[in-house]
Computed example of a mutant assay.
Amino acid sequence: MKLYHFSDNPDIQRFEPRMIYEETEAKVWAIDEFHAPHYFFPRECPRVCVWPEEYTTEADLNLFFCMSTTQRIIAIESAWYDQVSNGHIYRYSFNPDDFVLHEPNAGYYISSVSVVPSNVERIDDLIGSITDLGIEFRVTPSLKPLKDLVLKSSLNYSMIRLRNAVM
């Protein structure tokens, strides 16, 4: 298993546990390999990621995937396209022994102690890195219609930074 953290900072030597939102315990956050492409974006970029699971209905497969052979779609808003297409991100790798599973659906792992990354690599072609994995990349003026449809569907999803979306 591979675990990652994505940042626009190229020089993080040690990840210290920190509190987010109203958490009671500070944590270092990491993401698993399957969910990692959901983070091939500038940090504040809103996006909707969808993929089927065993309980996904045929109707939802037809609605979302009828024109594609992919099993995953990531959509962003057109206002973010230039930042994504011209951007880069740093992918930090971790030893998975330092983490425990926190949220399986999202692929989140946590550590309550400081963690030193085993590697850092710069990813320059964010869109190419997504599409090279067979993930369909969509651009739309607003994520709201997609968000509304996904929330009523049987698909598995991740919606990230929607507070920055055109709603």
Rank of each mutant, 00 (worst) to 15 (best):
R91I: 14
T57A: 03
E33W: 08
A106R: 07
T56A: 04
F64L: 01
I73R: 05
S78W: 00
S85C: 08
P96W: 00
V116Q: 13
P17G: 06
E44P: 08
E54Y: 12
H88M: 04
I160F: 10
S85P: 05
F34V: 12
M167V: 15
N86K: 11
T70V: 07
P10N: 03
I130M: 05
Q13K: 15
I20Y: 11
R138Y: 11
I127Q: 01
V100R: 10
A36W: 05
Q83I: 12
P46N: 03
C45F: 06
V116Y: 11
F99G: 02
Y21Q: 15
M67T: 14
F64D: 00
G134F: 02
T140W: 03
D148C: 07
I110T: 14
A30Y: 01
E16L: 10
F6I: 07
K27D: 11
I89Y: 01
C45K: 01
P96N: 00
I31M: 14
L151Y: 06
D148G: 12
Y4H: 07
K152P: 09
D8Y: 15
H35C: 12
A79H: 09
F99W: 04
P141D: 06
L143N: 04
I127P: 02
R122D: 10
R14P: 08
K152Q: 14
E103V: 15
R47M: 08
F15E: 03
W51S: 12
Y39A: 04
V100C: 10
C66W: 07
P17S: 10
E121P: 10
R161I: 05
I20R: 06
Y157P: 02
F41C: 01
P96C: 02
Y81P: 07
S93E: 07
I135G: 08
Y109A: 06
S118V: 15
E16F: 10
I89G: 00
F94A: 02
C49F: 12
F64Q: 00
M67Q: 14
E33A: 11
I123R: 02
D132A: 09
V113T: 13
I89P: 01
V28S: 02
L126M: 10
N86V: 07
E53Q: 08
N86E: 13
M167F: 11
M159I: 12
T70Y: 03
I127W: 01
V116C: 05
C45A: 11
S118K: 13
G134I: 06
R91M: 10
V113P: 07
S85H: 08
Q71W: 09
E58T: 15
I76N: 00
I123A: 05
W29I: 05
G134W: 04
A79F: 08
N9E: 05
A165G: 01
T56D: 05
E53A: 12
F94S: 02
I31Y: 10
M19E: 13
T140N: 07
Y81L: 12
C66D: 13
H102N: 11
E58C: 07
R122Q: 14
Y39K: 03
